[in-house]
Every structure is written in structure tokens, then in C-alpha cells.
Amino acid sequence: MTDNQQTNRITIRQLSKTYPGGVRALNQIDLEINGGMFGLIGPNGAGKTTLMRILAGLMRPSQGEARVMGHDLHDSSGRQAVKASLGYLPQDLGIYPNLTGREFLDYIAILKGITSSLERRRQCDSLLETVRLTEVADRKVKGYSGGMKRRLGIAQAMLDTPQLLIIDEPTSGLDPEERVRLRTVLSEMAKRCTVILSTHIIEDISQSCTDLALMYKGQILFRGSPSTLIGQARGKVWQITTSGESPNNGLSVVSMLQLENGVRYRVVGTPEPHHEAVLVEPSLEDGYIWMLQQARIAVH
């Protein structure tokens, strides 16, 4: 383990979070993150956002241990210490509509403790360039598109070169070109700090993360590399062409392609013998679907 990984280490032991209404969002999870780019995937309600909010110091865990860079997140002082070197992009980022993009970045830079106006200006200009907002930097945020606001949110998270960057759905609302560009930027960041990336876009994980966790109903269902998750679905992914009817009986359809004489389905599971099923190489998305399918079967 390198020094960088040691410094950036996140340790979670038996962590649980129960909301006042009795909803258990996290259920005794264990996780260790040793730096680099870490992917967090799972369906809605899996507990990803709760976990990230705890790691960002926005929420206290109900039980268990959570340490970020050696700081205990149960303590107010520990949370404060983490915030001093944190960049955070929430799923629903709010931005003051009457400020310009540049002003909003300057505002967050002040709150992050950058006291020199020259340094703030330098960082804001650089980040606006990175997320390609320089041309609209002096326009009020209320005139920005959803993608522009998302990019501004990413820029504010990267201010002051954080040691831990937690980003929730960073690429939603971005066009494909911007997504690719952003993935490159985040990969560069991951060389210097720990990046925790939560997303529904599996492609983002497969392209940029070396390590990931799959969450389901407040628990870690899988923990390992993307290639290991892909391996879980090997021998379970099929291509089936039908005249139009959807294959069922326990199969999960991953994708479909309209052909001239029918529909080609990519499915995960074990197809019935009468289907003309062709075994294909799995992708990360197939591995994700397969793991969730097995978890749901186990629950039922």
C-alpha cells in the first residue's frame, strides 16, 4: 500500500443508519476504500446516498464505525476535519440562481477557506476551463442548462484540491462528449486523491473505476474489481432473437435491438431450452443485473 493510499483510507465497520421513521438505510456494512477511483452502484433506495452523506459529514451514523483519513465521523471535530479536505457533489445540487457561475465558485472557495482572492481567481478560472464553462462564467446561473449546472457542481467539488472527492451522479444530464471528458478529469483527480463515484450509468464505472461496491437494501452485495463482477455473470448472458415477444421466465432483459425480422434481446439468467439462445461475453452491466437478480431471488 502506498503512502497516498494510507492517507486516503476510508474504513467502515458494522455501519448502520436508521432514520427517525424507522427506515434502515444502511445495515451493518463493512467497507474499506484505499484511494483511487471507487465506484458505488446499486438500485434506487440501496443506501448509496446515505453512505455518501455519512462520509461527507452531513449525517451521523446510528451504529458502527466510520473513519475517513483517520478521523472518526461520530465526532463533531472528526466531521469538521474531514470537511477541511473534502469535495462533495450531491445528487440534487442547489445553486444560487442570481449569482454568476464565477461568483458561485468564488463563494464556495471562500467557504472552503481560500482567503487569497488571487488564488481563488486562479482556481476558479482553471476549473471553469476544465468543465468548459469559461464562456458563460459571467452569466447568471438561472440561465444555465441542466448540464451546465452539473458541470458547475463538479467544478465546485474540485475546488481547493480535495483529498476526498465524493460525487453523486456526476454525469447525469451531460451529453456523451462531456461524459467522456469528465471521466478523464475524474481519473486524473483519482491519481492524487480518493474519488468515490456513485452512479446509475454503469459505463462510467467500467471506464474509470478499478474498485467498486454494489449495494442493495442497505448492504454490500458485491465488493471487488469490475472484472470480477463481470466474471460473476460469465455463462449467464445470452442473446435471444424472437419475432417480437419478450423472453421471460426469470430472465432479465439488459438490452434489445429492433431487427427487420424480429427483436434481438440480451438477457441475463438461464433461458428455457426451446429458445435459440446464444451465449455471449458478459459486460459490467450484465454482472450488475445478475447480482441483483440473485439477491432478489434470495430475498423472495
Binding site: L58, K83, Y88, P90, G94, I108, G113
Partner: peptide, 17 residues
């Protein structure tokens, strides 16, 4: 208003007391 528009989520992840 900060809570309503969601900006407090970001403000409270900075080292602001």
C-alpha cells in the same frame, strides 16, 4: 431558502462552522 434550493447540502460540507 438555502435549505429549500438545496445549496445548504454543499455549504455544510465545507469547513464552515
Amino acid at each position: 431558502r438555502d435549505r429549500q434550493i438545496g445549496v445548504s447540502e454543499v455549504l455544510h460540507t465545507t469547513p464552515l462552522r
